[in-house]
């Protein structure tokens, strides 16, 4: 690559400058078409219910999500240049059904069957109509009751079908985690021990729970709760904490992606500790002292007990 010199850009690279360069990793399927490239658009993210960045391949055949891997204090050298922003954007295909689900759930309140192109429209995210060409019509049956045939099909969200479909997703993901021996149990691990310990750790339940956490990143908190109940997955208490405040997409990514689900265990541990840390230094010292025969200082100031003692 020829060095980009003398382009008059020198000295322009202050931190305040808006980004104009990105390092991305995309599937080959996206780069193969030379005429008419893909398009980045903002869509409603099914979990956060805020906007998320997505990529549509040429002619909207495929929808992909854009995730940023960011660590503090990272920059890129790219050929003969520096890019201050050290994030790596990963673009991976996303099942379009996840993205249409919020619209279907919303329309379900009316109880009516509607054609899919009427269901998926959004003033805030007008680009969502691109999703229509990503979806295989027959796949809608995974999440909807469908009436009619051919061109005139009307859909209505079906909780039963959706949960069944999500369950399969979780199982698919759990299989993959098992195959790629991703560590799903909590805690840090010494590399020296990974080989000897890998096989006996992580039961099928562990993998399912972890996979369920991954799938839950694409559905609403309510649906996630239903899914865990439906599958009989026991999450450590404090699950509500995680549901209550879904982290923004980027926040989640800045930490390690596959690690996210481990928060469950961290929450459980953390909960016990604060009680101890709240004690003052004096209280801690006191707790070590033998207190037999000692009275609480407040008892000396209580008139009733004082009166009784005199008698």
């Amino acid at each position: 690559m020829p060095p980009r010199r003398g382009s008059g850009e020198k000295g322009r690279g202050s931190g305040s400058e808006e980004k104009d360069q990105w390092v991305v990793v995309v599937p080959d399927s996206v780069t193969e078409s030379q005429d008419g490239g893909p398009t980045f658009v903002k869509l409603l993210h099914p979990k956060t219910e805020k906007s998320g960045m997505f990529l549509f391949s040429k002619e909207n055949q495929q929808v992909l999500e854009v995730l940023a891997f960011q660590e503090e204090f990272r920059s890129w050298f790219i050929g003969e240049s520096i890019q201050q922003d050290g994030s790596l954007h990963m673009v991976t295909p996303v099942d379009p059904l996840f993205l249409v689900l919020p619209y279907l759930v919303k329309a379900y309140e009316s109880g009516m069957y509607m054609p899919i192109d009427q269901l998926i429209s959004d003033d805030q995210y007008p680009e969502c109509t691109r999703l229509l060409s990503c979806i295989n019509t027959s796949d809608l049956e995974h999440i909807c009751d469908v009436k009619g045939s051919g061109d005139v099909r009307a859909c209505r969200y079906s909780e039963e079908r959706t949960l069944k479909w999500l369950k399969q997703k979780v199982e698919q993901a759990a299989d993959k985690l098992t195959d790629s021996s991703v560590k799903v149990t909590g805690g840090a691990q010494l590399l020296t021990f990974t080989h000897s310990l890998k096989t006996e750790q992580a039961s099928r339940d562990d993998y399912l729970r972890y996979a369920c956490g991954l799938v839950s990143d694409y559905i609403s908190a309510d649906l996630s709760k239903q899914l865990t109940q439906h599958m009989g997955i026991k999450l450590p208490e404090k699950k509500e904490v995680k549901c209550g405040e879904p982290p923004a997409k980027k926040a989640k990514l800045s930490s390690e992606i596959p690690e996210a689900a481990e928060d469950y265990s961290k929450f459980a541990v953390k909960d016990d500790k604060p009680k101890n840390t709240k004690m003052t230094a004096a209280q801690r010292a006191l707790s070590k002292v033998d207190k037999t025969g000692m009275k609480s200082i407040s008892s000396f100031f209580s008139p009733k007990t004082a009166a009784k003692n005199k008698k």
Binding site: M1, P2, S7, K10, S75, F77, G79
Partner: peptide, 25 residues
């Protein structure tokens, strides 16, 4: 053309623009 060499560094450099990577790094 030969693909560029990319290095992800463990520090933030407050600069975006040309640099003599091949000569010094």
């Amino acid at each position: 053309t030969a693909p560029p060499k990319l290095h992800l560094l463990p520090c933030e450099i407050e600069h975006t623009g040309p640099a003599q990577v091949a000569q010094y790094f």
